[in-house]
Design a protein around this nucleic acid. Sequence first.
DNA 1: TATGACATGTAATCTGTTACATGATTAG
DNA 2: CTAATCATGTAACAGATTACATGTCATA
Lengths: 192, 192
Amino acid sequence: MTSLSTMQTKIPSLGYALLGLLLKPASGYDLRKIFSSTSMRTYSDSPGAIYPALARLEKQGLIRGTIEKGSGLRRRRIFRLTPRGIAELKKWIAAPITLGELTRGHELFMLRFAFSEPVLGAAASLALLQSLQAALKPYLLALRKELEILKPVVASSGRLAFEYGLRASELLERWAQQAISTYSKHSNGGLP
Amino acid sequence: MTSLSTMQTKIPSLGYALLGLLLKPASGYDLRKIFSSTSMRTYSDSPGAIYPALARLEKQGLIRGTIEKGSGLRRRRIFRLTPRGIAELKKWIAAPITLGELTRGHELFMLRFAFSEPVLGAAASLALLQSLQAALKPYLLALRKELEILKPVVASSGRLAFEYGLRASELLERWAQQAISTYSKHSNGGLP
DNA sequence: TATGACATGTAATCTGTTACATGATTAG
DNA sequence: CTAATCATGTAACAGATTACATGTCATA
């Protein structure tokens, strides 16, 4: 019973990664190379993942691909963000962090944060970090409580694995604190 | 062109999580509760994920579900590991760590490690940790090198995000070192 | 002329998400 | 009797993986 006006563009993690990278116009092949050769290896560089994802974003009107010829090689389609795409990126970055976002690894948060400064400026990065701190506080409490319950129950390898998860979240907290002090010195704007 | 004898059971992450949890026989509902209420929230607790996954594992002959009645409520199917299931679990845990396993978050490694002691004993846990250390050494070098290249290029939010990834891997290294010292004191056996 | 890097795409298949359907038992 | 909890499942759909198909250009 979804009304047309309420129909909202649902975008998976890969979609946001592509939107963020397309702050600089690029071809599908360029994006594949980024995924295969840099720290963004988290995303598959397979053509079967990227080309369909780009096609979906284009169908949603968030990016636009134009054929570029003349540079000698096979034709390339260069993709660029549309105004709607930029708006979607901004919306995604500005959203507050939910507790659930901390549960399944920190990669998604880091993707958002990485793009926050070029898209919305340092003030938005700071806001994201503060939102992270607020969400982290009750989450860490819950994890520590769970560790106390778990301690006597599970084998020590299970307990050690849990402890790593706790420590990674504690690391995130320290990282956020330090990043905040980096940012609170000066702020500048993002996209116009 | 896959020959029948070569045909190998391919198991996704959720499948291994279920196999490991089924060291203690449980119903689908029991497993859902574990995913919804404990630190294993990484996995969806939705019936649409778990019941089909259990059905696949059963079709592969790795688990066996038996209807249990009499306890008053609606019938429950209790699942147990078969000998083939136990063998598959052992094979998974004993496999050496690949560099690729470090790239996409550390959750998969931690799942393996958590089950290593109950399934194969402390000696296997130790071996896994040493394999981790060996894989981590070149990986950390590569990350540090990439950071040097990235530093002047990306916005500071991007650099900070990358730095978190590096620090999480350094944390993993320290955690492994400490876990090794926990284990090297004494070792005991796993499943018979 | 054959190989390899550049470049884009499709098809089959598998898995997970969301939403729905069903039914038994207990507590209020 | 009604709601909540226990308990198992299915169906439609979206997204990812794997493998394949195609084509250009440079170079050995």
